[in-house]
Design a binder for these strands. Structure first.
Lengths: 187, 187
DNA sequence: GATTAAAGTGACACTTGTGTTACTTTTGTT
DNA sequence: AACAAAAGTAACACAAGTGTCACTTTAATC
């Protein structure tokens, strides 16, 4: 009993992702989004009350996909297996740390409180999986004792964001980053 | 023969810095700036033609102060001396990497071409000093051969941006980061 | 005290974005 | 064919930003 949709929620999310990464949180607007998808601005309001609503739901969508993959880390028994899987996963999902950063710019107000809460829950789930990995590493005495847990996770997540200005090939770049993170840049 | 100034260029730069770090490039406006300094928007136009002009000049100002300090790296002869000085300098100027990132969001058009060019020149000067440090490290065989130069600089600059969500004390945090960068997080 | 010129203000016309609403289009169901 | 209902549009009133310009304020100089 309904007309066929001109654009899917997936279309919205795809364009949202591109615009967010390109223009940042403050540079994103429904106007840009509508223009990008060649639809009217009003149509978007049929599905999302406002910018924040859309962005939060998009973030939850991205997070869930990422978590689905991160969950698989538990398939690996060995610390090495988990470490390699985690690093590869993060380099494959290199936009996740950027999006998380952007997500933290959403101003918290009554309207979006619930959504933000749910998004933060997903972050906690992510942290839970990561913490499992860290604990195993500690138990097996693999990590430098003097380096705190949050820093281990921090350097892994942040290393994705190092700009490769010199256009070093992806495989070479990733291999080098892994090496620096594990063993440092000094001999 | 002139009236006393209500606000100095330094006042502008101070407020600009704060607003840029808080709101990002797209979230910065002359309106906010004027409000912050309790002056009229029109007054700012007496000194800067537009937002981009102001931001670029502010960036040049910040870069010059930073370069003045970075230059001092050459006072140290030993590689260790230079490395320690560089790390401490970057942690002391932790806003520099953030500001450089923000600066890269300025859209290049005819109006700002000259300013951007001059700002990029300052980046090259910065790179020159850093490259001197890298070369000495290579010559003295201190660096892991398999890690490319841009990545060594990249991890140093990016490490500042790792969010310390758990509020680990500054000194402890900095010490740990140095350790991870030099020797990695694995034993 | 009058003059001068820089410093600062406030209002104007304009642009871009928001959220809402009455409206039109499309398509399956009766 | 008529209808129902969801999908999409276009226009409105509003808010916040821009750049400009005629104006006022202030303080040094004659």
């Amino acid at each position: 009993m309904a007309r066929e949709r001109k654009f899917s929620t997936d279309d919205l999310y795809r364009a949202t992702k591109q615009l967010l990464l390109q223009n940042g949180y403050e540079g994103f607007s429904f106007s840009l989004l509508a223009e990008d998808l060649d639809i009217s601005r009003g149509a978007i309001y049929k599905y999302f009350d406002n910018r924040e609503e859309l962005i939060i739901n998009f973030m939850k969508y991205e997070m869930n996909i990422f978590l689905e993959e991160l969950k698989q880390i538990e398939r690996y028994d060995s610390f090495e297996g988990k470490l390699t899987y985690l690093m590869d996963l993060i380099f494959k999902n290199s936009t996740i740390p950027q999006l998380i950063e952007i997500g933290q710019r959403i101003p918290l107000n009554e309207k979006v409180k619930k959504g933000i809460f749910e998004l933060e829950n997903l972050h906690l789930v992510m942290y839970k999986y990561l913490q499992g990995f860290i604990e195993q590493g500690r138990k097996e005495q693999r990590f430098r004792d003097s380096v705190p847990d949050p820093l281990i996770l921090g350097v892994i997540f942040q290393s994705i964001l190092i700009p490769n200005h010199h256009g070093i090939s992806q495989s070479e770049w990733v291999r080098s980053i892994k090496e620096v993170l594990c063993y440092g840049f000094l001999k």
